[in-house]
Amino acid sequence: MRAVVVTGPGQLSLEHLPDPAPDRDGVVVAVRSCGICGTDLHLVAGDLGSDRFPLVPGHEPWGEVVAVGAGVTGFAPGDLVAVDPSLHCGRCDPCRRGRGNMCTDWRAIGATEPGAWAEFTPAPAANLYRLPETFPFAVAPLAEPVACAVRGLERLAARPDEPVVIFGAGTMGMVLAVLLDLRGVGPVTLVDVNPARRALAARLTGATVCAPEEVAGLRAPWVIEATGNPAAFGQALACVARAGTLLVFGVASPTATAEVSPYRIYADELTIVGSMAILRSFPAAIDTIGRHPERLAPLVTDTFALERFDDALRTVSEGRSVKTVLSPAATP
């Protein structure tokens, strides 16, 4: 099969690898498409550690089951599925407490295990979610990002008809803005340093969009930091109203730090929560996409063939797209 392989920080190539075979409790999925996200850029650059290389990235796939393991029931070749990339051990204390995303041996398809920037990807059958024949397949690449956003909004627990400010108008910022609007939370304000992203966000989400310098003095009961940038974290925290909540959603460098005033957290009774990956939110994500494809479909903006992975990564890193996907079937 053809696959994009990262052999070292910033070192990528399209290679021919043996087709994968399913584990006893797994399947092989022929990838229809797989998204690229900001976390992938960190991974490819080696920011998340280079001990996992060589690796086929890609943790946002959907496609068709083409082979099943001997122990698999409930799935058969021809089934169209979305894949939850999270791999939990099921044995550690967090897993036993129902917090698999905190697994002490947390792994993920496309992050620590072979991923889906390829023609085929193996996956445990337990991680599959069948897509009905009526599903809006053009929006299927958003299943994993929407599942992450659903988990984040569970952590935020914002109330309807109350304002929200989101720092970061990238893919996840826009997905969060749309989901908040669908839940009746708002008005929503999106903040971003990139004029191109601001223009896209204004056109695709219906939210108020502004530059960071335009929100000085703004306060809201619900604030989301969706950039992973420590400077943005500081500005987002300053934006939280008294008794408000800040959701830290963006993926920062493990070594990044930011200043926090313990007194302000005490005196203003602030709540700061994090949201890491996915936890039992895939079914809700698929349901949301199925019911609101017209709101989410515009966020899938660019599709590239595997042979053009470098163009795809450049498009994402320059902020010229919302959701960029790689498709093995696309014309180079």
Rank of each mutant, 00 (worst) to 15 (best):
M1H: 13
M1E: 10
A3L: 00
A3D: 00
V4N: 01
V4M: 01
T7D: 13
P9D: 06
S13E: 14
L14S: 09
P18D: 12
P22Q: 11
D25I: 02
D25A: 13
V28D: 01
V31L: 00
H42F: 03
V44Y: 03
D47I: 02
G58R: 00
E64P: 03
V65D: 01
G71D: 13
V72G: 08
F75H: 15
V83C: 01
C89T: 07
P94A: 03
R97T: 08
M102N: 07
M102S: 11
W106V: 10
I109G: 01
G110M: 00
E113L: 07
E113H: 13
E113R: 12
P114A: 02
Y129L: 10
E133L: 08
F135W: 06
V139K: 02
A140W: 05
A140F: 03
P141H: 03
A143Y: 00
A143C: 12
V146W: 03
P160I: 05
P163F: 04
I166T: 12
G170H: 04
L180K: 04
V185Q: 12
V188F: 03
V191R: 08
D192I: 11
R198N: 04
G206K: 07
G206P: 09
T208H: 14
A211E: 13
P212Y: 06
A220D: 11
V223G: 05
F233P: 04
L247M: 09
F249N: 02
V251D: 11
P254M: 05
T255L: 12
T255C: 02
T257Y: 04
P262H: 11
A267D: 13
T271I: 09
T271N: 12
V273L: 12
F282D: 02
F282M: 15
I289R: 09
E294C: 05
L299A: 09
A305C: 14
L306Y: 11
F309P: 08
R314L: 14
V316E: 04
R320K: 14
T324Q: 06
A329C: 04
